[in-house]
Amino acid sequence: MHGFPEDLKLDGIVGSEIQQICLGRYDVQFLVGSGTRICVQSLVEVFQGEELVATWDEERNWTTSAFQKLLNATVDTYAVINPQAMEIRLQDGLRLRLHDNSTQYESLQIYPDFIVI
């Protein structure tokens, strides 16, 4: 990706749950009940309130198992913080912060409608 646009439209995820978290060697993927798939190859941060409870990057994988709190959590809203970061706010004070930290390579992809045939 080449930064998050200020007018990023992901309204379809609001009210949906994070149904799956898929772990790979070089990425982590979040499948939202609306059919949206978010694939990240850069820094991911999980907050519970103001506390950072877990991070993911391709070198260390997850720092703690607290990322599992995201499973089945409902998306309340989302916001682009700046061109390099966006945040998905979930129920119970959970926040999922996604970073686009490479200007050379794509580090995040969003597929708004995951279609199974």
Results as ranks from 00 to 15, higher is better:
R89N: 15
V116C: 10
E50M: 04
I18E: 02
T55P: 03
R97P: 01
R37E: 11
P83F: 12
V116R: 09
D27L: 06
V116I: 13
R89V: 11
I13Q: 11
E50Q: 10
K69C: 02
Q109N: 11
T74S: 10
E58Q: 06
F47T: 08
H99P: 02
N82S: 12
F67K: 00
F4W: 09
L98F: 01
S34Q: 01
G12V: 06
A54L: 02
V14I: 15
V32C: 07
F47V: 00
R89S: 14
D7E: 10
E59L: 10
G12K: 15
D11N: 09
Q19A: 04
L31Q: 08
S65R: 04
E58H: 01
Y78M: 05
C22M: 07
L108T: 03
I115W: 04
H2W: 13
V32W: 07
T36D: 07
L98T: 00
P5W: 10
E45M: 11
I13D: 07
E51W: 03
D113M: 08
T74W: 02
V14E: 06
G35D: 10
R25M: 03
D113K: 11
G49W: 10
G15L: 08
G24A: 09
Q20L: 08
V32I: 15
G93M: 03
K9E: 06
I117K: 13
N72I: 01
A79G: 06
Q48Y: 07
L96Q: 09
